[in-house]
Amino acid sequence: MSREKTKKNGKITLSKKQNIAGWAFLTPAAILIAVMSFIPMFRALLLSFKTGVGNNLKWAGVFNYQRLALDTVFIQALKNNFIYLIIQVPIMLLLALVLASMLNNKHLRLKGLFRTAIFLPCATSLVSYAIIFRSMFAVDGFVNTILIKLGVLEIGYNFLAHPNSARLVIILALIWRWTGYNMVFYLAGLQNIEYSIYEAAMIDGASAIKTFFKITVPLLKPTILLTAIMSTNGTLQLFDESVNLTNGGPANATITMSHYIYNLSFKYVPNFGYAAAMSYLILILVAVLALIQMKVGDRRD
């Protein structure tokens, strides 16, 4: 009895000691996140109820939020973000998934080479690739030169001067840049699926398409959910591409919300309150979309 008691006491002090050590491990990271994410978030909320130029701010209630509803540029930016989101994210994730399951095939040769080639775009700088896409799709750029030589076009088409083609170029650029990134996650997830399942399916006569939808997609669901949330988040915060590829143009037709917030805060006469109200809307959108995705992801279990 007494022996048990001392043992218990010893354990408590030991676990206490470990508990303290555990907190010591994670305190720096937790404090940094609190100071760099949550405090600014709270301050942005306060800021969103104020109005004024630069740092001369006064309380304005929900004025900023009312103004948002009437701001045509903001509504255009919101629309653009959703266009990019709805068209680009599904195409990219499906493409990444198909490429990953192809690369997972054990009989494929030069696997390493393909994997590197598909991931390589992720190593290029966002600004650089945006600029390259811009020069490729310029009136006298690479794409027009080829189209003219093939006889498709007579004179160069100014892709970036028309809203729809400019959006298309942004979507193409995004797919090029991020497919490989998502593919890496799928490839990692596929490593955890027993290869014998695929071999069994093949013996049972399942087609490649059937194995893809019946085995790969259901088993990778957690990874798909993770990448979907990350991509949604990334698309709603799109900035570099909008600035460097089209500069929001023509006439703000391709501007994104982050780009507009930047313009409002640092390019035009600074209006931090209004920009903060807008940024809160993005925050709410991201949270709601992530919640929906998690719900949808859970339901199929």
Binding site: M41, L47, S279
Partner: peptide
């Protein structure tokens, strides 16, 4: 989930 745009100004 916190977008950078939301924390950038503060």
């Amino acid at each position: 989930m916190v977008p950078f745009a939301a924390t950038m100004i503060p």
